[in-house]
């Protein structure tokens, strides 16, 4: 009988063949962020990003963001953008809102090529920017098998 430990050591590489892929860098993420904010200051707060800290498969990762805002004509969220550090591209999605949105909420499924930091930034109608970040560990990376 193969011992469990040995079995797992032998089998693991066969089930997991990960090609090396190019990825963005924290610098690229900073550049993408600057494009979104025009260089304005980004403060922490008002934004709540919900994503599992431990992801079992990077191909489909549920992510939601909610921003604390009255969503009136005078005071609402204009846009929410999501950035990442280590996918091939730093930008994930940008969503646009108006007072008619009722709530500044975004829920989607994203891809994560590897363990990394994510950043959610909200642009408010008054011209300020707010953010939340999350550190995600990915056990199986995205985009392997066809």
């Amino acid at each position: 009988m193969t011992t469990p430990r040995r079995l797992l050591l032998v089998a693991a590489p066969a089930l997991l063949l990960a090609p090396a892929i190019a990825h963005a860098t924290p610098d690229a993420m900073a550049a993408a962020l600057r494009e979104f904010t025009g260089g304005a200051e980004v403060r922490r707060g008002r934004v709540a990003m919900d994503i599992s800290p431990l992801v079992e498969n990077g191909n489909t990762v549920p992510l939601s963001v909610i921003v604390d805002s009255p969503m009136t004509e005078d005071d609402h969220v204009r846009a929410i953008a999501i950035f990442n550090e280590r996918n091939p591209q730093p930008h994930v999605i940008t969503a646009h809102y108006s007072a008619r949105s009722g709530q500044a909420l975004l829920a989607t499924h994203i891809r994560l090529a590897t363990s990394q930091n994510l950043l959610a930034v909200a642009a408010l109608s008054g011209g300020t920017f707010w953010s939340d970040s999350a550190q995600v560990v990915v056990t199986l990376a995205a985009c392997l098998e066809g």
Binding site: M1, P4, L7, L8, A11, L15, L16, E56, T139, L140
Partner: peptide
Amino acid sequence: AQCHDDNAGRRLAGS
């Protein structure tokens, strides 16, 4: 059987 009976519930790489 070695995986799914003898080792069910254990981790193999990520899963």
